[in-house]
Design a protein around this nucleic acid. Structure first.
Lengths: 191, 191
DNA sequence: CAGCATACGGAGCTAGGATTCCGTTTGTCA
DNA sequence: TGACAAACGGAATCCTAGCTCCGTATGCTG
């Protein structure tokens, strides 16, 4: 199971049941005794990941600076999906794919992220029209870079460019810099 | 063929050969007489689209203002893929998927876009570290919003947020505005 | 109109991958 | 140790979707 996770991370949903079983050192029958169907197996894996995700968001909430908190969820979430192709897909399609029984995990995540965005908006450190839906949309985009352009493009650049578009104009930074956004959560206004 | 395009646009590569044939009002055999394999059929469709794409880019080159030119390719490209799920996928994965015999079309596109980016960079109207690879990356992201969040998110917002991150800081605009970036190619500096 | 060539249609073949089923192994309790 | 139960393994089955093949329809030529 936890061994299957590695395969799932590498190949995504196209990992085959035989491979997963072999990789875990068990027979196919055994896999099916634990999970009635392939989808159930994938769902279980995705649910665990979503839980980690919610934890990241809740942790970020404890950061005082509103902008730093938001940047931390975004960066943290991105880092969390890096290298897990299966979860990347789940993340991108998380809207339509009604993964049975993930509602709870997802709700916790959504709530935490929502609060963080609200705080940043109130503080005026991000573009005032930024919404929760935007968050999902941008995460989807960054994740797509990881998934579709694994070698040829650097998702961290994508992330920093997007963050530049999210911050309120006066806060924009990371311009003309190293481009990888190595800057920490410092928040002194630019200019 | 052109009828199959409609199905391909709606369903992407998962459109089935029988459906495509039926939709075109012919037998499967006939489809296979025109295209030796499913992949060949998809490739032919994608190639046509790529050609349109290159035209968009070449047209954008004729715009004098360097920033407006860049924005036009990006917006134009995005609009061109809207509603074509098949091409959206091709666009996102265009790096690894070595679609046989698209090299030429793709090269023309790449060249035009490269020139536009170079011009914008020289003029100092975009973040100085912006590269051609970034373009592909960001387009991939915007396209992923169309593909994965068809109803729930507005890719035009994604586009505008990203553009805000691409422009040089002094040029940033579209903040606190309507958010849909209805602004035309006007380029007067903000503040 | 007969004969030949070209294009068509779609039943059937085949391969890949999820799922099932049953004989075997391992573990537990008296 | 013997009997029963629980967990296992993996060959066999089923299903789906791409592709092949051959009998038929259409059209052209003399």
């Amino acid at each position: 199971m936890s061994s299957g996770r590695e395969l799932f991370a590498r190949l995504g949903p196209q990992a085959q049941m035989d491979e997963i079983a072999a990789h875990a050192g068990v027979g196919i029958g055994t896999v099916y005794r634990h999970f009635p169907t392939k989808e159930a197996l994938l769902t279980a894996m995705v649910r665990d990941r979503f839980r980690e995700f919610a934890e990241i968001a809740e942790l970020a909430e404890s950061i005082d600076d509103p902008l730093a908190a938001l940047e931390t969820v975004i960066r943290g979430s991105a880092e969390a999906v890096e290298g897990d192709a299966g979860f990347q897909l789940a993340m991108m399609g998380s809207d339509e794919l009604e993964w049975e029984g993930i509602e709870q995990e997802k709700a916790a995540l959504d709530a935490a992220v929502g609060r963080i965005i609200g705080r940043a908006a109130d503080a005026g450190v991000i573009r005032p029209d930024f919404t929760f839906a935007d968050f999902g949309m941008l995460m989807c985009g960054i994740t797509s870079t990881m998934y579709f352009k694994p070698g040829s493009a650097d998702w961290r650049r994508h992330l920093e460019i997007v963050l530049d578009g999210v911050r309120a104009p006066e806060r924009a930074r990371d311009r003309a810099g190293d481009g990888t956004g190595a800057s920490g959560p410092g928040v002194e206004a630019r200019r």
